[in-house]
Each structure stands twice: as structure tokens, then as C-alpha cells.
């Protein structure tokens, strides 16, 4: 027999569900929210990223705690950057139990369309303390150029 989570505590108030839904959606948009593991939506397995446009390059920062270089795959096709990887579970323990599990495991993929073409030869990626940083230098010819126009009388 399957166990069903008893969510609706008040059967006679049909709005409870709506309010719960509202609360859960509000929770998603709360800026300072703490990691939550329960709720309407499962915690999606996409690591947080930052994408910064600098003067000469783009920088993509990605939080990947517990991953090693071999677990991560960074690829670029024209101007679409793909970050892929698999986070493995700790496997050494067999006996014992988890009281709490807030971290995620599994594979993830993030695809970013870059706003302009980058020099794919010069892309560098570095993994340090669980943070992946990919630097994508902009192509010379796609940089804004100043062209002086001579005006003749």
C-alpha cells in the first residue's frame, strides 16, 4: 500500500491548498531563502551559476562542490556553452542511516547562449574549492571598434 502525504489538513476549507501553493511559490522568489528540501517543486539539480560580461571576456562561475575535473564536461559549439557533469554519491558507507539529506546528486546540464561569438581557442576553465570558473575571451573582431571617418570638404 502506498503512503500518501496528508497535505490538506483542513478538508472543509478548500482555500487551504491555494494558500499553500501561494506560499510555496512566494518561497521560490524569496531572495534570502535558506536551502529547503520540501515543497511543491523538487529541488532541481541545477547548480547555481553566475554569468558576467566583462570588457574583454565573459566569465561563467558555477558552484560544484564535491566534483572533480573528470566529472565535469565543458563544451562550446558556435556560441552555445554547455556545462555538463555528474555528481556522485558517497559510497563508502553501507551501514548506518542518513538523518538529513540536503545535498543533491545526479547529473546536470546547463546550456548558455552567449551574446556574441567568443574565441573558442582561448577558453580556459579552472576548478578550485568546488567552484568552476570558465573564462571566454571575446573575439577581436566582435569587439566594438572605433572607426574614424574623415570628412572631406
Amino acid at each position: 500500500m502506498a503512503l500518501v502525504k496528508w497535505k490538506n489538513r483542513n478538508l472543509y476549507d478548500p482555500w487551504t491548498e491555494m494558500r499553500t501553493l501561494q506560499d510555496e511559490i512566494n518561497e521560490l522568489f524569496r531572495n534570502d531563502r535558506l536551502p529547503v528540501t520540501t515543497g511543491l517543486f523538487d529541488r532541481s539539480v541545477t547548480p547555481a551559476i553566475d554569468f558576467i560580461e566583462g570588457e574583454d571576456d565573459f566569465t561563467v562561475t558555477c558552484e560544484l562542490p564535491g566534483l572533480e575535473e573528470k566529472d565535469i564536461d565543458v563544451s562550446i559549439a558556435s556560441n552555445v556553452l554547455t556545462l555538463k557533469g555528474t555528481k556522485k554519491t558517497e559510497e563508502e558507507q553501507k551501514k548506518g542511516k542518513y538523518y538529513k539529506k540536503e545535498s543533491w546528486t545526479g547529473s546536470f546540464q546547463r546550456t548558455l547562449a552567449l551574446p556574441q561569438t567568443v574565441d573558442s581557442e582561448k577558453i580556459s576553465a579552472q576548478l578550485k574549492n568546488g567552484i568552476l570558473q570558465v573564462v571566454l575571451p571575446k573575439k577581436e573582431d566582435s569587439k566594438p571598434k572605433q572607426i574614424t571617418v574623415e570628412i572631406k570638404e
Binding site: 534570502d32 535558506l34 536551502p35 558552484e63 560544484l64 562542490p65 564535491g66 558517497e90 558507507q93 551501514k95 548506518g96 542511516k97 542518513y98 538523518y99 538529513k100 539529506k101 540536503e102 545535498s103 543533491w104 574549492n129 568546488g130 567552484i131
Partner: peptide, 23 residues
């Protein structure tokens, strides 16, 4: 903020795995 944490317990010890990228 608290880091996401796994708490594992067996006979010998309690093990905490805390995800702290950048630390």
C-alpha cells in the same frame, strides 16, 4: 547562511557532509 548538509549516522560516528563551495 547554513550550507546544505547531509547527516549520516552509524555505530561509530556521526558524519556531517557540508557543501561549502569557495571555502
Amino acid at each position: 547562511v547554513p550550507a546544505p548538509c547531509d547527516i549520516f549516522h552509524d555505530n561509530e560516528s556521526v558524519i556531517l557532509y557540508l557543501e561549502m563551495p569557495g571555502v
